[in-house]
């Protein structure tokens, strides 16, 4: 009974926070328009949206289905408002659950994932805020040619370490999606800009292959 009440309360408060977050997000452009009496030309907004919305609306919706089971309920409400999911929140949650020895989809996994995402969101927000405040001092260092290669390689540096843990843990499950993705990117390198849309494709390949291996008793 107590178990259910925690889950229910996360939905209750999560929805309040998310609804407030959406309201605040929309109020940002609204207040700019009101304060400066500067309403945009709708044709420009439409043209801009046409360039990005078809792909990002699709990715955004698919992301919910892909990440919600991994992040758990609280983690999803929080992670989707604070953003930067693939490069920050999802790896932080996966790593924390792995290190604490709890499983995603169980209640212990749920709370550890929420704690990881909340800590990550607070740390990120503070680092960015501090960075903006100290920009004068930091900009020459951060944009120095010496450090540039390091920041260009954040994603490979992140997914190399994360990958080796998950692939070695489930190597049978990993073979099919890995081969598929490597071949795909070798064949169509331009896909790198839409890697977001390929996450669910990879998941479907992995699930399909797992289903097949399970039937043949290979798992």
């Amino acid at each position: 009974m107590k178990n259910r009440s925690y889950e229910e309360s996360v939905h209750f408060y999560g929805r309040i926070w998310v609804a407030t977050g959406i309201f605040l997000m929309l109020m940002m452009p609204v207040s700019i328009c009101l304060y400066y009496d500067a309403w945009p030309n709708m044709a420009h907004v439409f043209k801009g949206l046409l360039g990005v919305a078809p792909i990002f609306w699709t990715v955004g919706i698919i992301e919910v289905f892909t990440y919600a089971p991994m992040l758990g309920t609280g983690g999803t409400y929080l992670g989707f408002i604070t953003g930067n999911l693939t490069n920050l929140k999802v790896p932080a949650a996966l790593n924390a659950m792995q290190a604490a020895g709890v499983e995603a989809g169980e209640e212990k996994g749920e709370v550890i994932s929420t704690i990881a995402i909340a800590s990550s969101a607070i740390a990120t927000t503070l680092v960015i805020a501090l960075g903006v405040l100290l920009l004068g001092y930091l900009q020459p260092v951060l944009e120095s040619p010496v450090l540039k290669p390091a920041f260009d390689q954040i994603l490979p540096a992140l997914f190399g370490g994360l990958g080796v843990v998950y692939i070695s843990k489930n190597w049978k499950l990993a073979v099919a999606p890995l081969v598929f993705m490597v071949v795909l990117f070798l064949a169509v390198p331009s896909l790198a800009s839409s890697v977001g849309i390929l996450v669910p494709v990879g998941a479907l390949v992995a699930i399909g292959a797992a289903r097949l291996m399970l039937k043949k008793n290979m798992l």
Partner: peptide, 27 residues
């Protein structure tokens, strides 16, 4: 059992998409 495999497949789907991306510039 299938539930666990399903979850692992989701993780691996994400990881393999980013692993694949590493190979985008090999040419």
């Amino acid at each position: 059992k299938w539930g666990n495999i399903f979850m692992s497949s989701l993780f691996l789907g994400m990881i393999s998409a980013f692993m694949g991306m590493l190979f985008a510039d090999v040419r």
